[in-house]
């Protein structure tokens, strides 16, 4: 028998655990945007060594599962004498992993702009900085918004993997709940509902932003 009482009681602790899920996802995407922008700049730079570094960065991080990256990072840090809290390790790993995807999102958006957009600016004598900040980036950001929101939704789901390094986010919290209540089905369905709720909100935010920036 499905116990509605257990189902509803699970929400309290799981909502509490959801702060970690959100914290890891939001900080992860923030870090991912910062690093991803730098990687994208390196990828588009005129310097072959920088370009090669960025290409390797992207293909390595996209080619290794996040779970493995997390474990490697988590166990590698103490080896090189860095003792960081699990939370920091998790955010940094998620952010680095996201940076590969975000750099590709930027690159795709920039490549999608017609060449004439920058040419028109160059032709009237704008500086490279103005060409980027006034013409290319504003359009690239708008073009990328749906993909960035999508990436954030992926991160919310991927953050369940950080349970392996002991962070009590939604997934790990529900495992704990399931173990103490012996009602895994109710607990996991409650967890599923919370993930769904978060991601529906993000999708709605995405539609709102897209609508607002449409011209």
């Amino acid at each position: 028998m499905f116990s509605l009482a257990v189902f509803f009681q699970s929400f309290g602790p799981l909502f509490w655990a959801a702060r970690y899920t959100l914290l890891i996802s939001v900080l992860g995407i923030g870090l991912g945007i910062v690093i991803g922008t730098l990687i994208c700049a390196a990828r588009l730079s005129p310097y072959p060594p920088l370009r090669r570094f960025a290409a390797i960065w992207v293909s390595f991080l996209r080619g290794v599962p996040l779970l493995v990256q997390l474990l490697v990072f988590y166990y590698a840090l103490p080896v090189i004498g860095l003792d960081v809290p699990a939370m920091v390790a998790a955010v940094v790993t998620v952010g680095i992993c996201a940076s590969a995807y975000i750099s590709e999102i930027w690159r795709g958006a920039i490549a999608a702009l017609p060449k004439g957009q920058a040419e028109a600016a160059v032709a009237i004598g704008m500086t490279p900085v103005d060409v980027w900040t006034r013409v290319i980036l504003p359009q690239a950001v708008t073009l990328s918004l749906p993909a960035l929101i999508n990436e954030l939704i992926l991160l919310v789901k991927a953050s369940s993997l950080v349970s392996v390094v002991g962070i009590l986010e939604i997934t790990r919290a529900s495992q704990a709940q399931a173990a103490t209540t012996f009602r895994p089905l109710e607990v996991y369905i409650a967890a599923a509902c919370i993930y769904l709720l978060i991601n529906l909100c993000l999708a709605a935010l995405g539609r709102y932003l897209e609508h607002r920036t449409a011209v």
Partner: peptide
């Protein structure tokens, strides 16, 4: 500086859509 006094008009207009 030199380009400032040379105007250019393109086949595809190249207006900035934003």
């Amino acid at each position: 500086e030199m380009r400032r006094s040379i105007g250019m008009v393109f086949q595809q207009f190249n207006l900035w859509p934003h």
